[in-house]
Deep mutational scan, measured.
Amino acid sequence: MASQGTKRSYEQMETDGERQNATEIRASVGKMIGGIGRFYIQMCTELKLSDYEGRLIQNSLTIERMVLSAFDERRNKYLEEHPSAGKDPKKTGGPIYRRVNGKWMRELILYDKEEIRRIWRQANNGDDATAGLTHMMIWHSNLNDATYQRTRALVRTGMDPRMCSLMQGSTLPRRSGAAGAAVKGVGTMVMELVRMIKRGINDRNFWRGENGRKTRIAYERMCNILKGKFQTAAQKAMMDQVRESRNPGNAEFEDLTFLARSALILRGSVAHKSCLPACVYGPAVASGYDFEREGYSLVGIDPFRLLQNSQVYSLIRPNENPAHKSQLVWMACHSAAFEDLRVLSFIKGTKVLPRGKLSTRGVQIASNENMETMESSTLELRSRYWAIRTRSGGNTNQQRASAGQISIQPTFSVQRNLPFDRTTIMAAFNGNTEGRTSDMRTEIIRMMESARPEDVSFQGRGVFELSDEKAASPIVPSFDMSNEGSYFFGDNAEEYDN
């Protein structure tokens, strides 16, 4: 783990906690998980779902989305002020799938948001429990990260689609708070800032007046979040320049895209947490497990152990491969979309394939898809080993990566060399080191050039047997250095459309 220093740990961010010791953190995270579980059980009762239907990941996603929508204050306010045809701002819903006479049927349900809020609060001892809501947002974000390569979004903001390893959390809503900021990748933060800068260039009043003052505060806050992700002084200094700019424009845009590229080699610290679907927490609570009393951590053995003992089902389209669908969801559960496939294969105990080789589309089923041909199958979400999630980018030494994705962002704290394609990355730096950030740029390029592919990161860190909950005997895996390590390699994943 990167030293926490003055930073709060993510469990504290996750639970809005002030400084807590490890036991208190485990208890408050457990409380959050228990609340999600209780809410899910109650919703299944309301909807009269069978046990099997309640364990269907598509039903879980609909129920999670309903509660997130019920608590989305800004959108609710907007919907009330701008009524649109056929949208009731006070209601929320989605597809629920039921097994009827041996076939899967889709039923569109509609609930009062007020009623959903009441059920959620009741499951969370009367609190709004925003930490639990954020947790579900991060699960949705991790699922998107594993399912889609955001080529269009990258290109629109002047970045290269091969930089997708920097895009963790790119679909997280803005209201996801400190826990959300911690899991956002460098590219995601750059993209958010670039969008602001572009608006400022096109709209003279963007930075002016009372609204402009708020915009400015948001801009500086985002700059500080991004600065905190960088691990070298030169990158941090460049972020200070971007933040202090009187009138952010093209120079800042250039600096930010430069920094994003540099992060492929001088990786930023991005938190990883295993956020599971509500249909995993519900049955665990129903079986009598007391998360608050037992304590829970999002970055240790607990999620692995929970998945070892969970039964989750998914709808499967006619030509999809259930094992591939399982891999997709497994990666999402562990926030591992940008991790090295060699490491993932070792931990999972079966070969993890790149996205383009998977015969599976996303987990969600569109409303126009034919239910007649839908089957369902068990998702295999178990693992051979477990490993500690990392909050750091690993040290800054790398190795060759593949054509589709030119770097990785480690999820697990496991000893290995970190793949990246130096030639491709360095070719993108057209040696432009003039301007006010020239000395920093020169320094950053120097550090990137001296990074050695064969150097090892996370020295001495290994994986653990599932029986080793105290992480007492690390097993340090050895990897084939020459092997392909990137998930979005030469990829044809669908595009994420909101």
Score class of each variant (00 low, 15 high):
148 Y>S: 03
94 G>E: 13
141 S>H: 03
462 G>P: 01
117 R>M: 10
352 V>H: 00
220 E>F: 11
361 R>M: 04
320 E>V: 08
416 R>G: 09
394 G>P: 04
303 P>D: 06
332 A>W: 00
233 A>R: 04
219 Y>N: 10
390 T>D: 02
469 E>W: 11
134 T>K: 00
318 P>L: 14
103 K>C: 07
113 K>V: 02
398 Q>T: 08
440 M>E: 13
6 T>K: 00
98 R>K: 13
419 P>Q: 10
418 L>M: 15
436 R>F: 02
121 R>K: 15
3 S>W: 03
86 G>Y: 14
284 A>T: 15
374 M>V: 09
405 Q>A: 14
485 G>C: 14
94 G>D: 05
67 V>C: 07
433 T>A: 07
91 K>N: 11
363 V>I: 12
164 C>K: 12
215 T>S: 11
204 R>C: 01
235 Q>W: 08
149 Q>K: 12
492 N>I: 11
251 A>N: 06
289 Y>E: 04
294 E>A: 06
497 D>E: 11
242 V>T: 15
272 H>M: 05
361 R>E: 02
38 R>F: 07
292 E>S: 08
28 S>D: 00
312 V>T: 15
371 M>T: 06
226 L>K: 08
118 R>E: 02
55 R>A: 10
304 F>V: 06
60 S>P: 02
143 L>D: 02
450 S>A: 09
488 F>L: 11
429 F>L: 13
277 P>E: 06
209 G>W: 03
137 M>E: 02
416 R>H: 12
16 D>G: 11
404 G>S: 14
65 R>A: 02
361 R>A: 01
210 E>I: 06
416 R>K: 11
312 V>C: 08
281 Y>A: 13
54 G>W: 12
401 A>N: 04
466 L>I: 12
156 R>A: 05
435 G>K: 06
157 T>S: 10
190 V>F: 02
412 F>W: 04
173 P>D: 04
21 N>Q: 09
79 L>F: 10
47 L>Q: 05
473 S>R: 13
113 K>R: 15
387 A>Q: 01
391 R>Q: 04
411 T>M: 10
33 I>K: 05
378 T>S: 15
313 Y>V: 12
216 R>T: 10
495 E>H: 06
291 F>C: 14
414 V>L: 14
455 D>T: 13
124 N>G: 10
479 F>H: 15
141 S>F: 12
408 I>V: 12
130 T>D: 03
104 W>R: 10
362 G>A: 09
404 G>H: 05
393 G>L: 00
284 A>K: 10
141 S>K: 01
35 G>L: 03
252 E>Y: 06
247 N>T: 11
472 A>N: 11
246 R>I: 06
342 R>T: 06
395 N>Y: 03
497 D>G: 12
38 R>M: 15
179 A>H: 11
13 M>P: 00
458 F>G: 02
94 G>L: 01
181 A>D: 12
256 L>A: 11
68 L>K: 02
388 I>Q: 04
198 K>F: 08
265 I>R: 02
198 K>M: 06
250 N>I: 04
386 W>Y: 10
319 N>C: 12
279 C>N: 12
25 I>R: 07
158 G>C: 11
108 L>I: 13
40 Y>H: 15
113 K>I: 10
485 G>R: 07
28 S>C: 14
23 T>H: 08
296 Y>M: 08
486 S>Q: 06
374 M>C: 12
267 R>K: 11
71 F>V: 09
161 P>A: 15
221 R>S: 15
308 Q>T: 13
187 G>N: 04
305 R>P: 00
392 S>A: 13
46 E>Q: 11
173 P>Q: 15
440 M>A: 01
442 T>D: 02
19 R>N: 09
210 E>D: 15
4 Q>A: 10
217 I>W: 02
268 G>P: 15
147 T>L: 06
414 V>E: 08
192 E>D: 13
304 F>C: 14
335 S>V: 03
272 H>K: 03
38 R>L: 09
188 T>N: 04
329 V>G: 01
215 T>M: 10
75 R>Y: 07
83 P>M: 10
